[in-house]
Nucleic acid binder design. Structure first.
Length: 291
DNA sequence: GACCAGGGTAACT
DNA sequence: AGTTACCATGGT
């Protein structure tokens, strides 16, 4: 792979192990819109990015090398060697090997910690489409306009400071429902210094998980999503209703509970369990496994 | 109209 | 420690 700049775009040529559509649609992120086939608009880190994939080339529109280096390089996890990761996973497991054949372009994004936390609090007992809508509502209500494209204004995800001004009625107006007090508790703990999301970056995974689950409405699964998608802890295995059914169907051939599935994933996939989870999740949903 | 959605909590056995 | 009803809301 190599990078070049052309007018106001940055282009990555000959990039392996990357599929933009798979990476965005595997359920790890919620702030993106489809413009055309393989062309998307993403909102992240207070930026609006139009990005397109043409075979093995990725075009980042209206950006600079500097912005690419400081934001998008890390966001798309270009530091990690996916060839190596997939080799290791495919060698140890035939079922996963088959799943990876059709999902091999997924990358685990490195997302903003606060946004990921609030987004997955919202996610509980909702489908992905509705999660996206509620996050959009919150951004329009509490965030700031970043950029206007084709007459549509795109808003940043609200900061902690901006959400401090929110009350429960405001949040319910965004259709958060019973999750409104959960969001308020998260904002309260962070704003008052009881939780320091940045400091947790340097702590062991189990400690971070213990801290995150002190927030009301944050349990095992939501904490694992924040650990995987924002703290880059690739050993966790977020276990939701989908992945539960997928593991039951593809591996266990019997009913299981979430604790059982977590133990299984740890011994089966080890320190790469998080990657395995994303490949299996996308594969399972595409093929309606267990439904 | 019941059932489900990238779940968690409280109140039960 | 392992179940179960309930929590808003929109879609099928």
């Amino acid at each position: 792979m190599y990078i070049l700049q052309k007018n106001d775009s940055v282009i990555i040529k000959d990039l392996d192990h990357f599929n933009l559509k798979q990476t965005l649609e595997c359920g790890q992120c919620f702030r993106f819109y489809t413009i055309e086939v393989n062309k998307f608009l993403i909102i992240a880190y207070n930026k609006v990015l139009v990005i397109e994939q043409k075979k093995q080339d990725i075009i980042f529109y209206n950006t600079t090398i500097d912005e690419f280096n400081t934001i998008w390089y890390k966001y798309f996890d270009f530091d990690n060697n996916y060839g190596l990761i997939k080799d290791r996973l495919q060698k140890t497991d035939k079922t996963l090997s088959k799943a990876i054949e059709s999902t091999s372009g997924i990358r685990i994004l490195k997302q903003d910690i606060f946004e990921t936390l609030i987004s997955f609090i919202i996610s509980q007992n909702k489908n992905i489409k509705h999660i996206k809508k509620v996050i959009e509502n919150m951004s329009m209500t509490f965030g700031e306009p970043i950029k206007e494209i084709n007459g549509i204004t795109y808003y940043s995800f609200p900061t902690i400071e901006q959400l401090k001004n929110a009350n429960e009625a405001d949040l319910r107006a965004c259709k958060t429902g019973f999750r409104a007090p959960y969001i308020l508790d998260a904002v309260d703990k962070i704003a008052n210094g009881i939780l320091d999301l940045k400091e947790l970056q340097n702590k062991p995974t189990s400690y971070v998980k213990d801290q995150l689950t002190t927030i009301k409405g944050v349990g095992d699964k939501i904490a694992d999503c924040v650990l995987l998608f924002a703290y880059s802890r690739y050993e966790v295995f977020p276990t939701d209703v989908w992945i539960l059914r997928i593991i039951e169907t593809l591996y266990l051939n019997e009913k299981a509970n979430k604790k059982h599935v977590q133990q299984f994933a740890k011994q089966q996939f080890g320190d790469l369990a998080g990657y395995a989870q994303q490949y299996l999740f996308y594969y399972g949903r595409e093929n309606k496994i267990g439904k």
